[in-house]
Structure formats: C-alpha cells, structure tokens
Write a protein that binds this DNA or RNA. Structure first.
Length: 815
RNA sequence: GCGAGAGUGGCGGAACUGGGAGACGCGCCGGAUUUAGGAUCCGGUGCCCGGAAGGGCGUGGGGGUUCGAGUCCCUCCUCUCGCACCA
C-alpha cells in the first residue's frame, strides 16, 4: 500500500478538476437540477491567504460541494474586492502603482485558493478595479442619482490631514486615523451621500424575511438603524420669536422641562447669542467644541455647556426656561436641540446639577415620592404622571401615545419617529477607487456622465500620493471636459467612491459576469438569486450587509430585480486567533496557512479548521495545533481512512456485519443533518467513529467495502483531495466523487432494535439494562425493579413512585 | 451604561425537545510491533476513596422548580463581542 502523501495527490487532482470543468455552474436551460447559489464574501487582495480566508472559504466550500452532491446546479463564484485605501497605501510604501500591487496579490491568492481546493467557478472571476466592472458601478451611481437617491452636500466629517481624505467613522480609532495615527480633524466639507435613510424603515421591516441570519447580526442592524418612537414638539424662543423643533421619546415628561439645549452646530445658536449679547462668550466655546473630533467629544466633560441668555417657552404650560449650548446634544440626531427634563433623564440630570438648575418631578414611582433635592440620579422607570396638567394620574410610560395625540390636537407637536441611521458618505479624496461619474458645469450644475461615455476611466498617469486635495484634481487631462449637456467647458468630479459601493452589488455581477451590455442580465439574476447561502465574517454585519440590502431594495424599486433581500441565509465564521488575541504583525503571532498546506496538505488544513469547533466560534490556533512540528490531529485520521479504504478494496467482497451496516446508515443520517446546519465538527467526529469501527471490523476479517464507499463520499465535501484519490484510484470509479450522488440512509438500518435502558434510584443511575426498543412500560418497570443494583440502592426503603419512559429510562423514587 | 453571547476534564470540544455528563480528537500513561515511518496497532485516562466490586463528588458561585437540571427560573461573578452622551 502506498503511503498517504498529500503533496503528491492534491496538485494532481486540482489540475484534473480544472481540466474537467468540475466547478463550473451550468447555464443550460435544459439542466433539470435545482440551482443553488453558494456565495462567500469576496476577498480583499492584500498579500497572500491568511488563516481567516482558510477558515471562511473552507466552510463555504463544504456548502457548495455538499449541495452539488445533493443534486444541485451550484454557482460558487469568486472575485476580488480590489479598490481601496489598503492597496493604495501599500503601493505608496513600495513605490509601485496600486494596480500592479493589486494584480500581483490577486495572482498569489488565486494560486493559494486553488491549492486549497476550493471549488470556485473561475470562469466568472472579476475584480472591482477592472473598468469592465467599475463601469457598471458608475452606471448604478448614475441610476441612483437620477432617482434622487444621491446628493452632494456639506457635512461635518472626519478628515485625516496626513492621508488627506475624509474617513469613515469606522476608520477613526479613538480620535486618530487608524492607518497613520494622526489626530483626525473635524471639517465641514461638501461630500456625496447615498440617501440610505430613506430606506430606514424598510431595512428594518424586511428583517423579518432574514430567517436564516444569526440573531446577533439582526440585533446589530436593528441597533444601527436605531428607530426611536416619540414626538416632535415646537418650542418658541421668547426673545426672538424663533420656533425650534425638538424630538423626544418622553413627551410624558414635557411638564418637567426646566431648561433647553442646542447642539453647537445648530443654525440658530449664533443668532440667539447675538440677540442676547452673549456671542462673545459663546463663540469661543462653540469653536472649541466644533474643532474637536466627534469621537473625542464623548470623552469631554459631560456637563460642559454655556448659557445663551435667551429663553424657550414650553408650549404645554407657557413656562420660560433658560437655553444652553452644550456638546452633549448632537446635531446629527433628532433636530439638534432638546428639551431637558433633569428629573427623568440621566444626562439632563447631570447637567442640571452642574449648572444648578431646577429639577422638577413629573413622574412619581408607584407607592413612593421623590425629593428633587435629595435625588442622586434621574428617575427613568415607570410611574404615574404628576404636575402634568390634564394628564395627572396617568401611568407612564403608557401615556406617551396619548400625550403625543393630545399635542397633535392642540397643534403643539405630533407623534414622530427618528432613526439613528445616517446617510452613507461615499466620496473619498483618494486615487484608488471608481471615479464619481459626474461633471460640474457652471450652467447645468451636476451632470451625470451619459451611459455611452462610461466608464469614466481612472487615469494611470497620476501622482496618486495624497496631497492637499484629491489626486485626480491634479490631472488636467482628467479634470477638464466638455459638459455632456451643453458642451461648454466643465470639470469632472475628482472624488472616488467608497469601496463599499463596489461590494454592494458584486453578487449580482456573478450571475452574468462578462455581460458587456449591462451591469447584470436580469434573467440570469432571476435564475440564481437570491443567494441560497452567504458565508463571511461578522465584521461585515453592519456596513456591507446593510449597504447590499439597500442596493437590492433600490434595484427592486427600479424593477431590475424581482426580490428585495439578496441574502436570506447568512453564516458568520469565527475568527482565527492565536494565544487569545487576534493575529497581527505587531504582536508577531501570525500563523500562515500556506506553509501548513505545503507540509500536511490542504485536506488537513481544511479539516483542522472544520473540526476545531462550531463554525461560528473563534478558533485559537495555539490551542488547536499547539506544536507546529507535529501534524494536526486530523492528519492521523486521514491516514487511518487511507488505510482502511485500501483494505476494503483488497478484501474481495466479504460480508459486512449488521452492526457496521447500521452504524454506516446512522452516520449517513447524522452527517447529512450536520452538514445542513454547518455542524462540521460533529460531522467529522461521526466519520471518525465510523472509521474506527471499520478498522476493527477489517482487522477481525469482516467486510467494510460498502462502508468505505459511503465514508469516502461523506468526506468529500470537507477533504476533497483524499476523497477523490480514494474514489477514483482505489475504489475504481471513473467519474469524480464530487459528482457522485450523496448517500441516502436506509431507515430500517437506522432504527435501533436494542437500546440501553437506564435505571435511576432517586435520580442517580444505578443500572443499565439492554432492552428491546419496543419494550412496554410494564415490562420496563418490572425489569427495573428486578435489577440487582437497583434493588440494593432501594435498600429497605418504601418505593413512593416509579416514572417509566420506555425504552430509555425508569426512575424509582424512594422515601 | 445599553444590547447580544458564552463559562463543561490538562487542552479543542460533544450532549436534538429536561432523562447515561465528558462523544470525537489532542495531550499524557502503559503495552505490542517495526518494513525507523513526520510511524502503526492495542489498552488506560474527570476528581477523590478502594486491590477490586463498589461508593462519594462533579458542567463559574449561591438559591429555586422537578422523580430527575449542563439544559428551565431567580441572583451574583467572570469573560468575549457590538453600540455608546441617540434626547
């Protein structure tokens, strides 16, 4: 018998599969198989494969291969999320163009993916920095623009002075740029936004359709959208007559308002301060706060703030309360101004105590009363409304709806809803992205580039190092252009799009990846979409997944796709960490997958990941594979599989024992169920048990041939190379194991005829008796009472009760 | 602070609806064998008492429901993740 040598068999089969077109999805309309779109989140091509890729794609590949063996026509595509800041910064550091750096990485990763044996349909591969792709990203931008879902407007944003670009909030870590470490500045800049907030409610409502999503991801999206129900109430400024709307979730506390607060960016602040003659004092405060990055503000003193010198009139009781400006009120949320009720809001309470402002109780706890002077914190719990005019005695917070209705009737306000979700800032002042396809014309304004002129090519002869402006702005040939509408001299927009725009529709492109006429073929999309199973990292729980859902809904509204949710089923793999911490260069704890693959084989790499624990849990590589010079545990198992399958081929058709047949079919049932539920670790343990029993059977001279056939098939989705070698070379099949039909279990063999019945006395196991599976309750009881061990445990005690759950258990209760 | 999840042997982990805790694997201990192969095969391995039979204890701590709790309820502790002045 040959030794199991992965380095010999794995490259051989990879080449064979590619030659046979094994992983190509079929577009043949006569193909009767149901379609199955198995999608993995596409990788960012920076460097070679890392452990996270190995983990995620190993899981995704099991899904795809398993579905194929179960008779599906599988689409399992791969591509590259190739634009973006990491590529650009790496290219700058190495002094080579981002395009070159990206292409080299793609080449490297492609080799490694193939070496890992992932069953991708390589014929559909694309990358997002290819003009043939970003042409359609730009086209979609234009479509969104024409629908009024794109807007260019001024907004306070995070600006990194070193990288010279705006940053997304998630690229700012504790007030510093996550890449260069510079202090991020807050600037008001004109930027492009996608109006995702218009879809806030639908993004929330349609989560009901996402029945195959992890609960925590749904929760994160729900929190991110952040719906709040409450009321908008209009206050009047006494000194100037200005009317100011506030949003509150607690209109039931309106009678307890004792001051009023504006955000520093609120447009009325300067006017009001000037009217009151306090601007000299207010202005420095406002300027100082405004120059503090938003991420730093929360660390500022929570009680900071200055008086404006004007008063707001409470519409429900006509009271005049002083107005302040304070950073704890955010311009981005609600209306940028609040009514302050210190008795019943913790933040207002802190502010009130610091500024010596009155605290007025309008909600009393049931059966108690509050003393405003003695309170050390706000009372935010349930209670009864007091000092609240017509609502005295009403239960709070149950009264919120009634108060809102009453406000509406009085013309003082109305019930309203606010979302935390902000519009999506998509423009970047960087080079390596899809240019925004807009021309700025003095006459015509913002003019989208017509479809026939797309793509707006990203010029390659650009000094792309970050400077004081967008790199594209320095390229005269790019910037100067005739207005597509009037033909006069005009200027191109010089920003590029956030890479999350590229990745918001790539799953549609896979359905018709080489279509030169349109972004995607609607018929192909209707055939394959929605995605049957989406697999990827939980780090995309909000951004990518929310944006993709948004894109799909917009396209649905445009009549371009027949569904409104792209990914009804989602699975997040865990992270691969080392020694309790994420792997990183600075910690020096990076383990590379490819050297392990070279040494022990891709099958061992894949199985080690899959066997380490539940797919969605983190894997600590230090604990799972502690000694880098020893093969991971699954390698030894593959050796046993190798030997027992060879034995089976040499045995010459001996009979298999009934227990082995039963175990084989029970294993088929269990593994099938496990693979359907991403329970790879328990699937592997069942296959190990089968292997162990087969080894014993073979040693004792009984047949194992049928068991070997099933074993090889069941291993195939997880360890595709060894399965193929054994299937074709040892078991003698002509066609690939990966197109063989997934084994089906025989119910008669799965049914147990004999089971072990447990006898408990006072809850403790005292005996185990082998019984027939269809034993009657009476027989079970009699058998248990006859048990010597049970009788001894009962001693002389009086049997008070006997619980019989035939055939599993008899429980004897003794007084 | 708010939200979500998790605490099981030396380690990774298993245990579907309450019913044999520790499957499977790693590691370790003992043995066999050898064609010295990143070997293989057999046995053992939660802790404590015992030669064994057997017994006691045991799923983060405490309490409860139940004939019976890793699983359900209350409470406390610890850890991980997400959000974080959201009115």
């Amino acid at each position: 018998m040959r030794r199991y040598d992965p380095s010999e068999i794995e490259p051989k089969w990879q080449a064979a599969w590619e030659g046979e077109g094994l992983s190509l999805a079929s577009e043949d309309p006569a193909d009767p198989r149901p379609r199955f779109y198995s999608l993995d989140m596409f990788p960012y091509p920076s460097g070679d494969l890392h452990m996270g890729h190995a983990e995620a794609f190993s899981g995704g590949d099991v899904v795809a291969r398993f579905a194929a063996m179960q008779g599906h026509n599988v689409l399992h595509p791969i591509g590259w999320d190739a634009f973006g800041l990491p590529a650009e910064n790496a290219a700058i550091k190495r002094g080579i163009p981002p395009k070159q750096w990206t292409e080299e990485n793609i080449e490297q990763q492609r080799r490694s993916f193939k070496r890992m044996g992932f069953s991708f349909d390589w014929s559909r591969q694309f990358n997002t920095c290819d003009p043939e792709y970003y042409r359609w990203t730009q086209w979609l931008f234009v479509k969104f623009f024409e629908r009024g879902l794109v807007e260019r407007r001024s907004s306070p944003v995070n600006w990194c002075p070193t990288d010279a670009t705006v940053l997304a909030n998630e690229q700012v870590v504790q007030g510093k740029c996550e890449r260069c470490g510079s202090e991020v500045e807050r600037r008001d800049l004109i930027q492009w936004f996608f109006k995702i907030t218009e879809y806030a409610q639908r993004l929330l409502d349609d989560m009901e359709e996402l029945t195959g999503w992890p609960e925590r991801v749904l929760t994160m999206q729900r929190n991110w959208i952040g719906r709040s129900d409450g009321a908008t109430v209009t206050f009047r400024i006494d000194e100037t007559g200005d009317e100011v709307d506030i949003f509150t979730t607690r209109p039931d506390t309106l009678w307890g308002v004792s001051f009023f607060v504006f955000a520093v960016e609120h447009p009325l602040v300067q006017k009001l301060a000037e009217a009151a003659g306090t601007w000299d004092a207010v202005q420095p405060f406002v300027d100082q706060v405004r120059s503090t990055p938003s991420t730093m503000r929360e660390e500022a003193e929570t009680t900071d703030g200055v008086a404006l010198g004007v008063h707001a009139v409470n519409p429900v009781n006509g009271e005049m309360v002083p107005c302040f400006v304070a950073p704890y009120v955010l311009m981005e949320y609600g209306t940028g101004a609040i009514m302050a009720v210190p008795a019943h809001d913790e933040r207002d309470f802190r502010f009130a105590r610091a500024h010596d402002l009155p605290v007025r109780i309008v909600i009393e706890p049931v059966g108690a009363s509050l003393d405003p002077d003695a309170m050390t914190e706000a009372f935010e719990a349930e209670g009864a409304m007091v000092n609240s005019g017509p609502f005295d005695g009403e239960a709070s917070p149950g009264s919120i709806g009634k108060v809102a209705q009453w406000l509406d009737g009085q013309g003082l306000g109305r019930a309203s809803v606010t979302y935390r979700l902000r519009d999506w800032l998509i423009s970047r002042q960087r080079y390596w992205g899809a240019p925004i396809p807009i021309v700025h014309c003095e006459e015509c304004g913002e003019v989208p580039v017509p479809e026939e002129n797309l793509p707006v090519l990203l010029p390659e002869d650009v000094d792309f190092r970050p400077g004081g402006d967008s790199p594209l702005a320095r390229h005269e040939g790019f910037v100067n252009v005739a207005c597509p509408r009037c033909g006069e001299a005009a200027r191109r927009d010089t920003d590029t799009m956030d890479t999350f725009v590229d990745s918001s529709w790539y799953y549609l492109r896979y359905c018709s990846p080489h279509d030169e006429e349109r972004a995607f073929d609607p018929r192909a999309v209707a055939r394959w979409m929605p995605v049957a199973q989406y697999t990827g990292g939980v780090e995309h729980a909000i951004l990518h997944l929310l944006y993709s859902r948004f894109f799909t809904k917009v396209l649905h509204d445009m009549g371009m796709v027949p569904f409104s949710e792209p990914f009804p089923r989602l699975m997040n793999q865990g992270q691969v960490i080392y020694g309790g911490a994420s792997m990183s260069k600075s910690k020096g704890n990076i383990v590379e997958p490819m050297p392990i693959v070279e040494r022990w084989g891709a099958d061992t790499m894949r199985l080690t990941m899959l066997f380490a624990g539940p797919f969605e849990d983190d894997i600590d590589w230090k604990l799972v594979a502690p000694d880098p010079d020893r093969p991971p545990g699954v390698y030894g198992w593959l050796g046993r599989v190798w030997r027992v399958v060879h034995d089976s081929a040499a045995e010459g058709g001996r009979d298999e024992s009934v227990p082995l047949q039963q175990l084989t079919h029970r294993t088929i049932k269990g593994v099938t169920e496990d693979l359907e539920r991403f329970r790879f670790n328990t699937a592997i343990s069942k296959l190990m048990t089968l292997t162990n029993v087969m080894t014993t059977e073979a040693r004792e001279g009984r047949g194992v041939r049928m068991a070997a056939v099933k074993l090889v098939q069941m291993i195939a989705p997880m360890a595709p190379f060894i399965a193929e070698e054994l299937w074709r070379e040892v078991l003698g099949h002509d066609e690939s194991v990966h197109v063989s039909v997934w084994p089906v279990f025989d119910a008669a063999l799965v049914a147990q005829d004999q089971v072990v019945m447990v006898v408990q006395v006072n809850g403790k196991v005292r005996d185990k008796i082998e019984v027939s599976a269809d034993i009657s309750e009476d027989d079970a009881r009699d058998l248990a009472l006859a048990s010597e061990n049970a009788t001894r445990a009962v001693g002389g005690g009086e049997v008070a009760r006997i619980i019989v759950k035939a055939p599993k258990l008899v429980s004897i209760v003794v007084k």
